[in-house]
Every structure is written in structure tokens, then in C-alpha cells.
Amino acid sequence: MANKILVVLEQREGQLKKVSFEVAKAGSDLASKLSCDVEAVIVGSDITDINKIGNYGISKVTHLRNSEFANYSASGYSQAVSDFVKEINADVLIIGNTSMGKDLAPRITAKLDGGIAMDVTALEVDGGEIIATRPIYAGKALIDVKVNSDIKVFTIRPNVFNPGEPNDSLAEVSTKDVDVNLKDKVVETKQASGKLDVAEASIIVSGGRGMKDAESFKLVEDLAEVLGAAVGASRAVVDAGWRPHGEQVGQTGKTVSPNLYVALGISGAIQHLAGMRSSKYIVAINKDADAPIFQVADYGITGDVFEVVPALIEELKK
């Protein structure tokens, strides 16, 4: 049984992040299955267009505001959200499984003595109880879990819960100024400017050792550019120093579920597959027809990346 669902939205530089629409929709869908209330909260300083969250089924949102909240602070954000949960008597929280959410959700859970299920890919209701499904062993298995404490916290995997088409309703926004006593502070943000992160992209083009060397890897970037995709990499490429670790996909890199994942010159080792096998569509280009990547690919071309990829870029530009 649930009383009230609170979805925790996320902003970066004052803009709602895409994952906010996904948590909003996941929260409103769950609320209708449980016939309970749902509302949203967002922590930040100045934030634009918060009311747009109404497009995804949420009619009420509270902005917990302080000028010190322009950047994320674990201590500040977790205190503000926990106090708000108590104030409105919410008992189910839905948060995005992002770098902010993964840090924030457990802090709130511990403050409220709740239980938590991370990186959830499905939320169902059975006999009035919420059943969450989550991948474990890097996606080699799934578990269904139930949270038995009064406060239940779920983080949802980005790109999995479809926010659907936005409607034109707007949410009612109330702003609440809160006091802070930050114990940890972001003093600098080093954003690789304009670069799309693999964890957030809906299309990813990844390259492996088959791209030959760091210079030739440029071809991966070129294809990513025409597709509006993020660039990913296998560990072999990261270990060789051709690409930064932030781009590594796999068990010891990032877990991704884009709509389209294009693997260029990647063999498809079990640790790589673990990070990308839940992608909706997978394309593999590899000259070895026996490469394991073809076992998970929807579409494959068994050819040389240096011939096929330039042709593919030309075709897409048409």
C-alpha cells in the first residue's frame, strides 16, 4: 500500500534533465496503478520551465530553493528532500539512477530509515504491492524485489521508462526557500563542453580495438556526429589510452540502454555485452563473422570498418 509518491526531478544548470520526464511518467503511472497521490520535488537555485513537468502527468511540483543549490551537494540536497518527504508524508520515492540520483537516493534512504532498490527497469503492482525488477551481475540476471519498509525508494534506469509524448498540461509550481548547512560543496565543474554522455544518449556509436589506433578512431566520432550520437568505447581502447574512461561501456564502465547502439570493431566480450545488451537496437560492424557481438546484434555487417563506415556516413548524409 502506498500513501503518496514523490518523484525527485533533476536539473543541471537550471534546466530540467530528460530523466526528469522519465521519473515523472514512471511516478504518475505507478500512482494510477496504486490509486494514490503523486507529486514532484526539485532542488536547485534558479530553474526554468519547471511547470513543463505537467506534460508528463504531474500536476504539482515544489521547488526547494537556495542559491547554494545551484550545484549538487549530497548533504544539502539529501537534507532538503528528506525534510520535504516528512512534511508531505510521502512514502514512495522515485529518483533517476544518474550520477546525482545514485548519490542522493541512498543518503535519503538512510536518513528516513527506508529501503531501497537501485537501477530499476520495471515497476509493477501486484496485490497492492510494488514489485521492482532490476538487473544484477551486469545484466546477466534480473531480480524481482519488494521493499518492506514504510519508506520505499526506487531509482530508475535512464532511457528505460518511456516518458511518452508530452501533452500540454502545466504543473502548479510552488517555491519553498530552505536553509542549508552544506557539508560538502562543488567548487568546480569540469564539463566536457557540449559533449553528450553515453549514459544519457539515445544513440551511441562505440569503437573497439578494430578501429586500429587513436587517430583512426576519428571515424567513430564522424559517424556519431551524423547520427547525433554519443561516442562510446570498449575497455581495450580505454586501456590503450585512445579514449577517456568516461566513455567506456561495460561491466567496469557505464551501463547503457540507448535506442540504438552501433558497435564498430568491437568483439563483444562478456564484460562489454553486460553494459549494452539492453539497448533497444544493436548494429555491429566487424570483419570477423564469428565475433560474439553478432549474437546480440539486430543488424550486422561482416566487413571492414574502414570501408563500411565511410560509406555509411555518405548514405546517412543523403
Binding site: I143, D144, S149, S278, I282, F294, G300, T302, G303, V308
Partner: peptide, 30 residues
């Protein structure tokens, strides 16, 4: 606070189509 109800295997992804073995396959891929 968490109770594991069941562990299961993910839906196995079926290998898809091999469209071709060289640059001539790109039009069909697109």
C-alpha cells in the same frame, strides 16, 4: 528492508540479420 522474490534470466536477445559483408550493405542498413 528488501525481499528478493525471484531471480530470472533476461529475455535472451536473438541474433539478428547479417545484412552484408561490405560497403554495399549500407543502404539496406539505413
Amino acid at each position: 528492508k528488501i525481499e528478493v522474490l525471484q531471480m530470472k534470466k533476461p529475455d535472451g536477445k536473438q541474433p539478428g540479420k547479417i545484412i552484408g559483408s561490405d560497403a554495399s550493405a549500407v543502404a539496406e542498413l539505413v
